[in-house]
Design a protein around this nucleic acid. Structure first.
Lengths: 215, 215
DNA sequence: ATGCTTACGTTAGAGGTTATAACTAAACCA
DNA sequence: TGGTTTAGTTATAACCTCTAACGTAAGCAT
């Protein structure tokens, strides 16, 4: 007697179909990329005709919005559970990389080139700030013996994005360094810019992580 | 006078129309992004009907390929002329940033999320390796007092991408650091992930650059 | 159990896209 | 001036998103 019993049969069917649509959407995104997502093709795969999907999603943008939201949530959940298991910054970084490699297009959907016509609703900014908060938490453990840089001073006055987090400017800077450097390596790897270069991207990622932790 | 006289009138007209098509394509890409590029819309803007464009480009992919090639070439030219003018790594980095901000979609066309079905022709790999060579040249001036890392050792055995460049492993590593870190900040900025966060992306870029040069 | 209501899925269609085929017209060139 | 080449045209096929109108069937209440 799960809580699904509290819902009406129609509601259960509805959420089930919505889930199945998203499943096909992810499958399609993983192969053809996000900007080539086709509602029509999904409908055909599910054995029903195009316009039927509009009962479940207002349109292509609504579906993409939900996929982005799910991607953010999946990343937040993954990082949070790792963090709850006592992961430090290094483990967290490798958790991020594993999550990204598990489904490259899912990472690129969030952090890659934005989908042309698409505009993120406010709700998504909220979820992404949750991830940011976890990053800030983890960065509190960073060594803080480095001198105060001009950018640190700037951050002291521009810390709205920390959303009340008590991290000092040096930690804010550290979090941004963490984010941008790992993203730099990851995004180029996922976009295929390292293929054919011969070296192992995992080692470059590890090297950047070492630099970050030794700072 | 110019070499255009050696060409027949038809050839001159042809290259002129091809150039005009690309002009409209860039204009359209700058506003709507690359994956939303519409041959039809370009034709309409030029006052002719859709299929006419297929006289000049084999299709959408062919046009995008040429745009990517031009973008690579524009970046290489910009960096080369800066380098020829005696620019050091710091100036080169800011040249890169200025080039990217001048037309964000042009940067993202090269280094952003790749178009799913698209495969870069060999010619493009050549131009991009030219840029890489310039980066390596510039990185030769990097201080090399840092200890040899495990990744440096790995690079000593996997340096095919340097394509005969005499840079030692530490410089190869430095070049990769340069590339990935600047791209990390730049791509997130261009994709709009810093908007609403309040801090100045230019200062973060400068801070990363300082870290790189002080290494 | 039977009727009412609601929601599902269908077809039809408007307007967009890429791309091909067939045809006209004009420009070039010998 | 006549023949060849090429530009641009329409028509068409096959996709796409999305709206509208319509039957049908499932759920719910009386």
């Amino acid at each position: 007697m799960a809580e699904t019993d509290t819902k009406t049969p129609r509601e259960r069917y509805r959420t089930q179909v919505r889930a199945e649509i998203k499943e096909h959407a992810w499958e399609q995104i993983a192969t053809t990329g996000a900007s080539a997502l086709s509602l029509n093709a999904i409908a055909k795969q599910m054995g029903m005709s195009g316009p039927a999907l509009y009962r479940y999603y207002d349109g292509r943008d609504a579906l993409i919005t939900e996929l982005i939201r799910d991607a953010y949530r999946s990343l937040a959940d993954t990082l949070r559970s790792a963090s709850a298991a006592g992961a430090d910054l290094a483990v967290l970084a490798h958790t991020l990389r594993a999550w990204a490699l598990e489904d490259p297009q899912r990472y690129l959907l969030i952090y890659g080139t934005p989908v042309p016509g698409y505009h993120a609703p406010d709700e998504i900014t909220l979820i992404s700030s949750e991830t940011m908060a976890m990053l800030l938490d983890a960065c509190m453990a960073l060594p803080s013996d480095s001198p105060v840089t001009p950018f640190d001073a700037h951050l002291a006055d521009h810390r709205d994005w920390a959303d009340g987090h008590p991290a000092p400017p040096a930690v804010l800077h550290g979090a941004l360094r963490f984010w941008t450097r790992l993203h730099g390596v990851l995004s180029l790897e996922l976009a295929g810019h390292f293929t054919g270069m011969g070296f192992d991207p995992a080692l470059l990622f590890a090297a950047e992580l070492d630099d970050l932790l030794a700072h």
